[in-house]
Simulated scan of single mutants.
Amino acid sequence: MTWTIPNILTVLRLLAAPGVAVMFLFFARPWADWFALFLFVTAAITDWFDGWIAREWNQESRFGAMLDPIADKAMVVIALLVITGFSGMNPWILLPATIILFREVFVSGLREFLGNTAGLLKVTQLAKWKTTAQMVALAVLFSTGIFEHHFAERVHGMDVDTIGAILSGELPDELSLVRLLWWQDATFFGGVVLLWLAAALTALTGCDYFVKAVPHLKDRPQ
């Protein structure tokens, strides 16, 4: 294995995947959310960048081809676990997350079973869009935690009536509570919509791979 720039970026992306969860073990929120968001977005950008470098600089390798999808799946799966956990198992997040996780396990199992013929399950353009949709949705949902906890910090010690008066416009909004609450709601609902879109694309690619694999799953005549 040659340590080319694309391979190094892929390995770093793989290491960043568990780092997203580790941020919440060593830092308090919202700092953990900020660090996790930065790590996730940076790693997601390298997903495009290392592929572009590999093609343009003719540095494509079997090691990179093997590790790249593993790094992508690790990032998505770990981020989904973190977001689902901190959402309080919100069904609007849990259901699309379940679809995505089921598809990833199912397709990985197909590839393992097919062995030498797994090459027929090559990554399609739709699968690339699926990965992009997943990355964007998860990044948006990570930002929700940032706005949520900054809002909680600013209203700490306030009584409910005061908070309600500020949000309704009866009192001046010196702490920008309305803006924080708007961004919190916007990123949550926007992230949920994007996550459902990603889940739909994920299911479609899973069905596509299964259809391609069916001829190779039939029992041979005795």
Rank of each mutant, 00 (worst) to 15 (best):
A133W: 00
F113R: 13
L101R: 04
L121V: 07
V107K: 04
S87E: 09
V107H: 03
T117S: 12
G109Y: 12
N116W: 03
I93Q: 08
K122H: 10
A79H: 08
S108K: 10
Q125F: 11
L101P: 01
F113S: 09
S108H: 07
R103H: 01
T132D: 00
L80T: 07
L81V: 15
T84E: 13
K130W: 02
G88K: 09
L80P: 07
L121N: 03
I70G: 03
G109E: 05
T84Q: 13
A97Q: 13
F102V: 13
I100L: 10
K128I: 00
T124G: 05
L126G: 11
L126R: 10
R111N: 05
A118S: 15
V76C: 15
A71W: 06
G88Y: 12
T132S: 05
K128Q: 02
A97L: 12
L80M: 14
F86M: 15
T132V: 11
K130Y: 04
W129K: 00
D72F: 03
A133S: 13
V105H: 04
K130R: 11
S108T: 14
L114V: 10
G85E: 14
I93S: 08
D72W: 03
R103E: 08
F102A: 15
L114F: 10
A127C: 02
L121I: 02
K130L: 04
I70V: 14
G115Y: 06
P69D: 04
F102M: 10
I100F: 07
L94P: 02
L101A: 14
L114Y: 06
M75I: 07
A97P: 07
M89L: 15
G119Y: 04
L80W: 11
M89G: 09
A79V: 08
R111K: 13
G109R: 09
N116H: 13
L95T: 13
N90W: 09
L101F: 10
F86W: 14
T84N: 14
A79W: 08
A127H: 01
F106C: 01
Q125D: 08
A118T: 06
L101E: 00
L114D: 07
G115L: 04
L101N: 07
L80A: 12
A127I: 02
W92C: 01
G109Q: 04
W92E: 03
A133Q: 00
V76N: 11
A79M: 10
W92K: 02
V82T: 12
V77H: 13
K128N: 01
G119K: 07
A74I: 03
W129V: 00
T98I: 14
L95R: 12
